[in-house]
Nucleic acid binder design. Structure first.
Length: 505
RNA sequence: GGGCGCGUAGCUCAAUGGUAGAGCAGUGGCCUUUUAAGCCAUUGGUUGCGGGUUCGAGUCCCUCCGCGCUCACCA
């Protein structure tokens, strides 16, 4: 971007000069306000049916969203953080000069302070009969919005900002003109708050663990690398919270959770952003069955608290969050979906061969775990619309989970699916330090040097485990995806305020 | 990273290879209860950047930049 101004901007810059020439500061320091738009409406409605209604004086502030000058009167709408309200200006009250001043000096997008009494117009709209007004902040760039109308309290927009690139690069403008976008982020905040309430109610302690980590771990992902100058130390942005949260169980906390940002140096798509928000919790003395139940209750709680109902629509599907969710054993699910029994194919070669006979494309040299992952993603996940748990996963894609009793090749792990998307991942956590050390070595051996699935050895984590870690169940869930599901958004960029985009210059 | 598509005024969009337009916004004027207010007039463009083909390119071809969809990878 350069600092060249468009014609529209030049006009507004001239208006700023005119204001200053008249001794009017277009960006004053102090603001007065007695009512929000919503409070003004409520205050008026509370008294308007009285026998001798009390006259209510109010001072409101907001951004000009529409102006309808009609000669010696003017109508305008301002929008504040709560809603919209109409302003009514009349030459009889404030003089022709003031009407002209308003019409000329003010533009859509400017912030204004207006005082007057609250009344109802002939057409029935509660409005402010303006007696005085002043500029609070002059907008130089016009908002990228055309006209909109209010029908039954709903703002209907006509040809508003729609280009996704501009919307995400200039989210401030997107938010300023698209009320439904603001609503998504209010809902997102409510979802996070509800999750915190639920975890707190269940006596989980909210904690914060390092984002800058000398050794990354807890997930199969490529990290971002950074560097501490003074310490001359390579550091990684975390790819999960897992290993630090489980250290806290060693430290004596029984239930901990964290809601925060993870960073994964991988592809960007409609459901992947390089940084995304996770909820993880670890629960001592619980196993994955108890975590499954808590998960169902957690999502029902969120739905109740945020929406007051447990059914919602996602991309045309009616989804019901009432517990219990459907439970499908992964092995059986894959047999039903593909006819392949993964237990009959304990090597990558055998499984790849079976997949090829079924006409399923196989990436060469894939490890068995990666092949199973591919089967889940391509043949199971898209059909899991209603809330479903897939459980009992192969050990070789779950280096931090505990094996099933009597079956060392399978671990007590489940993933929760909703709307055809993986939403959460949990397991009975491995707490045997010797077993864990063997798994780390195995993960290091089985994958190529540059394979992102390769897990680095975390000696400090192993030391923590050797002090004794209580049996526990762990859980991770993507908050962005949960928000997508609950707000019916197809793209993760719609639920992240400032999604990652390539630099333009 | 691969494939497909897109990029025109502040915004939303037009324009058989032949003078780049419309609505809204803006500017000037009329208008004392409007609400996508209305009426009259009017400004506004290096068509993402750079090359090429052609008498002539928004349009066809190529490079680059960005975005979207999709595949791969992942949560």
């Amino acid at each position: 971007m350069s600092n060249e101004y468009s014609n529209l901007e030049q006009v507004r810059l001239e208006k700023i000069e005119e204001l200053r020439a008249e001794g009017i500061e277009p960006y004053p320091h102090r603001v007065e306000r007695t009512h929000t738009s919503v409070e003004a409406v409520q205050a008026f409605e509370a008294v308007e049916n009285d026998e001798n209604p009390e006259e209510i004086q109010a001072t409101l502030v907001g951004r000009l969203r529409s102006m309808r000058p009609m000669g010696k009167i003017s109508f305008a709408h301002i929008e504040d953080g709560h809603g919209r309200i109409q302003l009514f200006f009349r030459a009889n009250d404030i003089g022709k000069e003031q009407i002209d001043f308003f019409n000329h000096a003010f533009d859509l997008g400017d912030f204004i302070q207006a005082s007057g009494r609250i009344f109802r117009t002939r057409t029935g709209e509660i409005s402010i009969w303006v007696e005085s007004f002043r500029m609070l902040s002059k907008a130089v760039t016009p908002l990228p919005a055309a006209k909109d109308e209010v029908v039954d309290g709903e703002v209907i927009q006509h040809a508003t900002l729609a280009d996704p690139e501009t919307r995400f690069r200039q989210r401030y403008a997107d938010l300023a003109v698209n009320a439904d976008v603001r609503k998504i982020f209010r809902t997102r905040a409510a979802i996070v708050r509800a999750l915190q309430n639920f975890m707190d109610d269940n006596e989980f302690l909210e904690v914060e663990t390092p984002i800058l980590q000398p050794i990354y771990g807890g997930a199969a992902a490529e990290p971002f690398v950074t560097h501490h100058n003074q310490l001359k130390q390579e550091l990684y942005l975390r790819i999960s919270f897992e290993l630090y949260l489980k250290r806290l169980l060693v430290g004596g906390f029984e239930r901990v959770y964290e809601i925060g940002r993870d960073f994964r140096n991988e592809g960007v798509s409609f459901k992947h952003n390089p940084e995304f928000t996770q909820l993880e919790f670890y629960w001592a003395y619980a196993d994955y069955n108890q975590v499954m139940e808590l998960t169902e209750n957690m999502l029902a709680f969120v739905a109740d608290q945020v929406f007051g109902k447990r059914t919602f629509t996602f991309q045309g599907h009616e989804i019901n969050l009432d517990p219990p969710w459907e439970r499908i054993e992964l092995r059986q699910g894959l047999i039903d979906a593909t006819g392949i029994d993964i237990n009959q194919h304990m090597t990558a070669e055998s499984l790849a061969a079976a997949m090829k006979t079924k006409g399923i494309e196989v990436k060469p040299d894939s490890a068995r775990g990666k092949l199973i992952d591919a089967l889940i993603s391509n043949h199971l996940e898209p059909n899991l619309i209603q809330p479903t748990f897939l459980y009992n996963y192969p050990r070789d894609i779950s280096p931090l989970a505990k094996s099933i009793l009597g079956d060392p090749t399978t671990v007590e792990r489940f993933e929760g699916f909703l709307g055809g998307m993986e939403l959460c991942n949990a397991f009975t956590e491995l707490n045997d330090p010797l077993d864990q050390e063997a798994r780390f070595l195995e993960m290091g051996r089985d994958y190529a040097e540059d394979d992102e699935e390769r897990h680095p050895m975390d000696d400090d984590y192993l030391r923590a485990m050797r002090y004794g870690m209580p049996p526990n169940g762990g859980f991770g869930m993507g908050i962005d995806r949960l928000t997508m599901l609950l707000t019916d958004q197809h793209s993760i960029r719609e639920v992240i305020l400032f999604p990652h985009l390539r630099s333009k210059e």
